[in-house]
Design a protein around this nucleic acid. Structure first.
Lengths: 190, 190
DNA sequence: GTCTATATTCCGATAGAC
DNA sequence: GTCTATCGGAATATAGAC
């Protein structure tokens, strides 16, 4: 139990993660978090002394999550198209949560982020792009999917479709995201 | 001259536009603007009583800009691929300005925007998507470009590639955006 | 160890000077 | 008409109570 993190800290992390994806780093305050937990805003500072500390933990948390997802996909029996669908489903779910993806959120706020966090954001982004590229490359080698670009470029195309797709959905509706999802899956089937 | 807008107001609008695209609606203050003009922050309030007024004018300004661009493209002799390239070039330029596209910026901050502005954002977005879709549809009818999706869907795919492409470039570098640009133009040539 | 009372700074906005 | 001095409130953060 020595490594156990308190429930309060876990809840702060979870609420912070949701707020980051819903309104962005500059638009939420410690008060927004403390009110949800019925504590004073300063209590949040005990667990995370500065907002930068909280943000850093959120990003680290996503790095861990994506490492697990990468392992899960690598060890799964899913067909390549279904692996990409798993990925697309995660983005579709964001829309229902009134969220955008973590990378899009911090990218929009990038020039206002603490320097130390920017490095972590780069790591997270490279992790996700690399994961998608690997899935695509293997799928093509196995003859399951088709694309002519480099795997890294194709990963960029798909990732940007999804990331900006959830952003656009806030403005024009979820139907547009579904059109994007369907189209990019169809493209892989050639 | 009766309709003339003061230089100060014009400069406020211009600086506000730049700040909106660089750091987002919640991350800039009237002080950021007033300092650049060597006036007091309250002087900005004379020209734009509330921050919402400024944001609304910025979005309206973009609507006018894009209407002009749409007319310009419709009356031009450019080939379809070059019209899309004009569009992609605008996005590439944003990266050099440390900016992201206006639609991506307000989409990320959407749930913190004043209600009245959200409607304008919807109009702007539909305007841009419609413009791109029209260019694509005409280009396909003229046999200049090829794509199998509906024109609206293809516009979504291209727009999201570009919008999230400039966001990603902040994190992983401009080279990734150039890969995206090259790939999406190549796709149109089939 | 966990949280509250309090300080400090900066925000958007108003009232009033020139 | 244009801008400055100033207000009320909210933000992040510290010091100290329990």
């Amino acid at each position: 139990m020595s490594a156990k993190t308190t429930d309060t800290k876990q809840e702060i992390l979870s609420i912070g993660r949701d707020l980051l994806k819903k309104v962005g780093y500059n638009a939420f305050s410690y008060s927004d978090i403390s009110k949800q937990l019925n504590i004073k805003n300063a209590a949040v500072h005990y667990h995370y002394p500065t907002k930068e500390d909280l943000l850093a933990d959120i990003v680290n948390n996503y790095i861990e999550d994506y490492k697990k997802l990468e392992l899960g996909l690598a060890n799964s029996n899913l067909k390549t198209v279904d692996k990409i669908s798993v990925f697309a489903d995660r983005y579709a779910h964001l829309i229902d949560m009134e969220s955008i993806c973590i990378i899009g959120s911090v990218a929009s706020d990038f020039y206002t982020l603490p320097e130390a966090v920017k490095d972590k954001v780069v790591s997270l982004t490279n992790l996700v792009l690399g994961m998608v590229a690997k899935v695509l490359e293997k799928g093509r080698a196995d003859g399951e999917i088709f694309f002519k670009e480099e795997a890294h470029t194709k990963a960029l195309l798909i990732m940007t479709n999804l990331a900006a797709g959830v952003q656009l959905a806030r403005i024009t509706g979820k139907k547009d995201f579904e059109s994007i999802r369907t189209a990019l899956i169809d493209q892989l089937k050639k």
